[in-house]
Design a protein around this nucleic acid. Structure first.
Lengths: 148, 148
DNA sequence: GTCTATGCAAAACGTTTGCAGATAT
DNA sequence: ATATCTGCAAACGTTTTGCATAGAC
């Protein structure tokens, strides 16, 4: 995918690498994690550049910025609206798509008198691994699993 | 409401004031805002005490901690599960209750194979005031309005 | 009297920014 | 050529923490 250029968007090496890094990862990286990964390919990259670029890419709709209860923003190559399930034990975040939530939007509009343009639901609970670990008394490692 | 005491919960003056402050406010204060308010009554209070106490009160279920896209945690006297509508113009946050969202939980459980224990939806859009301001070309001040 | 909580101050985070020099256009 | 971007480094706001003292029980 090529970046759509709005007024004065310059295609720099750094931006290309940062975008490629987010697009090559199937999950929800923090800006810090992206910085570390980009630095392996381009050691002189600055933290500030990564932050600025990630927000720029998000504004251009090329990636999506997500916010969870922990403090760090996460970035996702998936730009379509979707929701997330978060394991309170191991911290893994898994994508889900909950069409029912679209109905909730109208209810929220009626209650609040807002004009609603987007919404995001975070579900908290235990992933399969941590459910099992709980039964055996063990603690699950942070194993990457994604909802199908 | 009196704090339920678990093992080694001490009723201190500071804790009582902090709890009373959250319970007397009808909205979503940040920890910093709560600190400022508590300090008017109890000028020697420390930031650290406010933070520690707010989390303690949240763990005990006396207040609720909420996280939005901006960085600061907010604290709410409402402990029942509910959702929020956020105005992207003026930043106001309004409570809503979206029972439909309960159905979404089962869908999310099936898709993720998680055992889900809680969920929270944030809707983004424009409040009535900012809708009006947009029409007239004016910018709305941050006026407190709550959904009925 | 003992054990926990507070106040203080420093540090740990994630994030943002001003600026001079480098680079895309 | 020039307007924008990068790298650097410092600053910012929120949150956490170590430690000695004060206070609840």
């Amino acid at each position: 995918m090529v970046a759509e250029k709005s007024a004065s968007y310059r295609n720099t090496t750094q931006r290309a690498i940062i975008l490629a890094e987010v697009e090559s990862y199937d999950g929800h990286l923090t800006a810090g994690e992206i910085f570390e990964r980009v630095r392996r390919q381009y050691p002189t990259i600055a933290y500030g550049t990564v932050y600025r670029t990630l927000h720029l890419l998000a504004e251009h709709g090329l990636i999506q910025e997500l916010t969870f209860a922990d403090q760090a923003s996460r970035f996702d190559k998936r730009v379509e609206r979707h929701d997330h399930v978060h394991c309170t034990d191991c911290g893994i975040i898994v994508d889900v798509d909950v069409p029912v939530a679209l109905m909730a939007r109208h209810v929220a509009e009626e209650q609040s008198e807002f004009t609603i343009t987007s919404h995001h639901t975070v579900f908290n609970g235990l992933c399969r691994t941590c459910q099992g670990a709980r039964n055996t008394g063990l603690r699950a490692a942070s194993i990457s699993v994604r909802a199908g």
